[in-house]
């Protein structure tokens, strides 16, 4: 993945980079909207946690990474997977529980990983990726080749003790780690402000690393913050913390209404406000590119149709896949190998 140029020099390279970010955001949006529909109308084998409304953080950060940079993700990880170059067909087949899935149907939505793309994986444990990314950053430091290790996590995970442990280790060892907090204000079904003291960014500041708090629905702002952090990694200057304020449109997981039994943790008005074009990360980027003459309505419509077509192809790929191998779990766990 080429590193895009962020300045508006209107060069072809710059324009291509902008369109590439928009293309990935559209793919994530349409893939997850489709998953929401399937979850509701047909059903999927397991739960899915969707990142609709948060596409800019995944794409902005990953736009500055190379394929061999490491990345750990969260339970809400489809966007990170696709933004880091993961294949939508293999991801859908995984969510459908098929043998053709990226993890052969052994992991599902919460564990999509592709090591050939540096994607160490999504994680079902809130905060579970923090120490793994820190370990990958240690490996990158030992390799000495300028690789970075990015850890996506949420404001919910920032209340896990391991968050502090990892900021500490990364800072004291000067590891090439980038901690990216996607602050959507929600910790599963609880409003984070009701369970969180102080500012999360102050926690990172306490560990003596550069902190940047950005508008999480502005893909360019995120990309710029990521570029600074990645360059620090390349130069062996140590870890960085980026906090992107954003909002999750969907529930913690699909069909959460059934689980909550009529209870709510937010109002419909609040959700609707974040859906509007002045806040939606894709609409904002679309309008911006339209004003700059990079992407007019026709091109946007074409890109949208392309994303939809790619998603429909992924659904077909997933549906046609063979069922998962029922003996694979034993083989992978080494069961039955003992004398």
């Amino acid at each position: 993945m080429a590193t895009p140029i962020l300045t508006q020099d209107q060069s072809v390279t710059w324009q291509t980079a902008q369109l590439s970010m928009l293309e990935r955001m559209l793919l994530i949006r349409h893939a997850e909207s489709r998953l929401a529909r399937v979850a509701k109308e047909v059903g999927l084998p397991g739960g899915v946690h969707l990142s609709i409304g948060q596409e800019a953080t995944a794409v902005g950060i990953c736009s500055q990474l190379e394929e061999d940079d490491w990345m750990t993700s969260t339970h809400r990880g489809h966007g990170h997977f696709l933004a880091k170059g993961g294949d939508v067909n293999a991801m859908f087949a995984e969510i459908w529980g098929k043998s053709s899935g990226i993890c052969k149907g052994m992991g599902g939505s919460m564990h999509v990983a592709d090591f050939s793309k540096g994607i160490i994986g999504a994680n079902g444990i809130v905060g579970g990726g923090l120490a793994i990314a820190t370990g990958a950053a240690l490996a990158a430091q030992l390799d000495g080749n300028g690789r970075a290790a990015v850890c996506f996590f949420g404001d919910g995970a920032a209340n896990q003790g391991v968050f502090m442990e990892c900021l500490n280790v990364a800072s004291i060892w000067n590891l090439p780690a980038i901690f990216v907090c996607e602050n959507n204000g929600l910790s599963e079904f609880t409003v984070s402000s009701t369970v969180t003291a102080g500012k999360l960014s102050d926690r990172a500041r306490a560990f003596d690393m550069p902190v940047s708090v950005v508008d999480g629905n502005d893909v360019r702002a995120i990309a710029q913050a990521a570029r600074n952090a990645v360059e620090r990694c390349r130069r062996s200057e140590g870890p960085s913390y980026i906090e992107a304020s954003t909002y999750r449109i969907q529930g913690h997981l699909e069909a959460e209404d059934m689980i909550l039994g009529g209870g709510t943790y937010r109002t419909n008005d609040e959700v609707e406000r974040w859906r509007k074009d002045d806040r939606d990360p894709i609409a904002r980027f679309r309008d911006c590119l339209n004003n700059e003459g990079v992407c007019d309505h026709t091109l946007f419509a074409t890109m949208t149709a392309d994303a939809e077509a790619a998603v429909e192809a992924a659904v077909a790929f997933a549906e046609q896949g063979d069922p998962a191998d029922t003996k694979l779990a034993y083989a992978l766990m080494g069961v039955g190998e003992e004398a």
Binding site: W70, T72, L130, T134, G135, L138, A139, A149, V162, V169
Partner: peptide
């Protein structure tokens, strides 16, 4: 000190880093 490191007292991170560093080739 590159290959042999004293860590802070943080077992959750020690075990997690072992996973990350092993996954990344060590």
């Amino acid at each position: 000190p590159k290959r042999v490191r004293n860590t802070p007292i943080c077992e959750a991170t020690i075990a997690g880093m072992a996973v990350g560093a092993a996954a990344a080739g060590y």
